[in-house]
Design a protein around this nucleic acid. Sequence first.
DNA 1: CCTACCGATCGGTAGG
DNA 2: CCTACCGATCGGTAGG
Lengths: 209, 209
Amino acid sequence: MTDTRTDGRTARGDRTRRRILRRAADIASTDGLDGLSLAGVARDLDISKSGVLALFGSKQDLQLATIRTAVQIFRERVVEPAMTVPAGLRRLSELCENQLDYSRSRVFPGGCFFSAVSAEFDAKPGPVHDLIAASVAEWTELIEHTAEQARHAGELAPDADPAQLAFELVAFLDRANAMSVLHDDPTAYPKAMTAIHHRLNPRTRRYRS
Amino acid sequence: MTDTRTDGRTARGDRTRRRILRRAADIASTDGLDGLSLAGVARDLDISKSGVLALFGSKQDLQLATIRTAVQIFRERVVEPAMTVPAGLRRLSELCENQLDYSRSRVFPGGCFFSAVSAEFDAKPGPVHDLIAASVAEWTELIEHTAEQARHAGELAPDADPAQLAFELVAFLDRANAMSVLHDDPTAYPKAMTAIHHRLNPRTRRYRS
DNA sequence: CCTACCGATCGGTAGG
DNA sequence: CCTACCGATCGGTAGG
């Protein structure tokens, strides 16, 4: 069970698993998690459909593992780099800029992975919906929490509303992604940057909820 | 060709066609335009799959006709009622409120039809993508045009940026729909209303781009 | 990880 | 609008 031959097989399985998941996340960002087919991802990676199924058990399990992979990529690309700057307004700005950069640079070919699959599963009950909703909520709560830290640090007006601010910031981020992917509109990201800076910069920080 | 028997058949075909399209729009708002299947809509309406195909020609033609139906419903529900109030700030406000009401009241069971199908087809080239993009652009251009009218009427600062204002307003509308459908969050629409009023109300109209 | 298979469902056609 | 059919593709299983 633990000899080198079995270890080699396990290691190979892990590598294949990661290749499948990365490809699955790319496919899902353009075609959706339902549009993601076992046969399709297998064909792309030159393995058999049953090979994919042997590693993941069922299509739904592949969908769930794909979402977890996208969460990990999002964390590495957007969240973790912002944790190197101090909590508060600077970190809030950094999170927004990183998210726009993640969308703009097409880390996933269909733009933001979560915008794509949220709209697909928002009205469909089940474990896939629930994992997407929890993953998205984690992000919006981070934005809101960071806004609250900024308020506590005196970087926002004492009567500022962190939940309202988070709503507006996330709205700008999502809208920029949608405009860019649907219309290929180059003004999308600059408009989001302008809107975000108006909410976060000193000159307009007097703005109240 | 024009006797009563043929007329009766044509009239029956039109009625069936409308029933199919209204049902197809409901299905597409939750399951997407690809999730919409000829057999599925036929089953729901107790007609044969080939009956649907006889009336629409192909699945893609059904998808295109479904989008046109949703556009018509959106116009009747959101745009036309706002045309009874004067152009400018009041109409801009009315358009936003009507859109929130259209989303909140679930005219389509999956929330805003266009948010659902935009995310589905934004990264897929073809005539369905193009019709969705054109329909969505018509709406955002109406918002921008109305903001421009408000500026000309002196209801916005002379240096206000209608395109930037439209970006922010549409962002709030889309975000409220997404939060409500994905998380069933009751705070979504009030937050959008708050954000919109801050952009459009006298007290904060001094806000500049 | 593989081949070989299963039933179900898909979009679409033939012919009426 | 219908019945009867087509090939293709789907997710999944058997057995290795």
